[in-house]
Design a protein around this nucleic acid. Sequence first.
RNA 1: UGCCGGAUAGUUCAACUGGCGGAACGCCUGACUCUGGAUCAGGAGGCUCUAGGUUCGAGCCCUAGUCCGGCAGCCA
Length: 578
Amino acid sequence: MNDTPDLSIDNDDSVEVQSDFIRDAIKEDLRTGRFTKVHTRFPPEPNAYLHIGHAKAIWIDYGIAEEFGGKFNLRFDDTNPMREEQEFVDSIIEDVKWLGADWEDRLFFGSDYFEQMYELAFVLINKGKAYVCDLSPEEMIEMRGTPTEPGIDSPYRNRSIEENIDLFRRMKEGEFPDGARTLRAKIDMASPNLLMRDPAMYRIRHAEHHRQGNKWCIYPMYDWAHGLEDSIEGITHSLCSLEYENHRPLYDWFLDELEIYHPRQIEFARLNMSYTVMSKRRFIELVDGKHVDGYDDPRLPTLAGMRRRGYTPKSIYEFCKRIGVAKTNSVVDPAVLENCIREDLNKHAQRLMAVMNPLKVVITNYPEDEYEELDAVNNPEDLDAGTRKVPFGRELYIEQDDFREDPPPKYFRLSPGREVRLRYAYFIKCEKVIKDADGNIVELHCTYDPETRGGNAPDGRKVKATIHWVSAKHAIEAETRLYEHLFTKPNPDDAPDGEDYISNLNPHSLEIGSCFIEPYAAETKPGDKFQFERVGYFCTDTTSTPHKLVFNRTVTLRDTWAKIEKSAKSPNQFILQP
RNA sequence: UGCCGGAUAGUUCAACUGGCGGAACGCCUGACUCUGGAUCAGGAGGCUCUAGGUUCGAGCCCUAGUCCGGCAGCCA
């Protein structure tokens, strides 16, 4: 889109309607009158932490409701007492709220509808469309058949309506042990869709529910519960991921047989990203195996981890917008995500100077024990952010990478005899390289030009590079945590025989180090976001204290020089024939 | 070997429903710059999975294939 006016800062106010196959379908539904409004829901099961894949779903659900002037519900699909916990309810609420999806006063729990679901089950029983089955789980599996062979009718399939009513009541009353009986829908044991072969609607579980306590001992299955939840809440479009495609006929069957309000289910592809994993099971394995530091480890694609890493809700929404919505199974390059966060932080992050790998510089013609304060711009993308004072003195630290004794071609930074600018300070020229007994460079002797204070030369001479620095006396030492991809391969499952994805863990996914940072950083609080100039974007970690500052690297800056240097080293030369 | 989906640039998506295949990210060039950042300008990159068919005209419709994904929990 090249005609976007550059003047509009952030046009967050105008809710621009995106375009994809789901929105197209909704427009069509509105046009034909199948629905007269839009009402969506995000229905997580409270059994895990949310990850970036859920953010995609949330953006689709919430974004669509917002764009069409409709409503959005947050609903916990808590129909299985064995797997669900309050801890996850809390973390999910926190994450959805953080993302900015607003459910207003519509926070619901599927389990709150258990009574209605129970009553509705009798409608089906009375129609002869549901029956109590005494088959064991093993027998039921056996009689279900296979994709190529039809199943066999349960011997309990033709129980009388009266007996079914009686038995189902007694199931609820707790007369039978776990697994003894189920309530099943009577559909078609020969259906090519396995899900239609008399699926279970209720199972017996004498278990305590995180919300309902011991009130129930029968619990509804997903297929029975979900459509009812949608119907009860007046959902118009029940959006879910592709693996539920085969469930749609069943979703529709229940609602049709019940003759109640009937939302439309539409499925989309879930998000996959390269160089990471995206499942609850693997998060558990990585945490339990101490490969990461917890569910909010900044290397994990959990929303808690991304928040700690320094990602903003806005950048995540932008990411979701860019990857779009389709039915194709796809794998997104994390570079897209990185680009989104760079774009957001570039506009809003406070700039600071921090030196990661210090090399001492002595300004030999600068007076000893004398200091001064220079003005530095807080954010060149946002002049309203103002300026700050940065202390300068005779002894400084610069980045080791910013000096080369023997500079390669196109290297513009400091080298013997060459002049560069210290950002917001002075031009300096390297006069002498000091080495230790082993020949390692330990210190640089430079001279500065007092006329260039602030960074400009009155005589108009130019330098080809500007480097960052800190005053050795004033700098604060802080811990840095530099992150890379969690895995070394785009597809972590691409492992040698006998190995699994764990073998593809990147040993350098976390490098703990330290830096010298200008004193302005002293007051930082967890969650603060900065650009360390010429280095990358950093976020103050949750564990950071004034006594020990800790910064997570959210993402590096783009590094064109690294590319130049890399391509110069690569032997990939072509000789063209004349 | 049954059923349901899917296949368009390196990647993720578009293509006003049958009318000259575009964008973003990535990549390459250049301009500008007190961040080798940002910004701006330009460029390379496609037998639209294959083979037939319908049509004046097919990425789109039809037929037959190929490849990929999902489905045989009393999980969601």
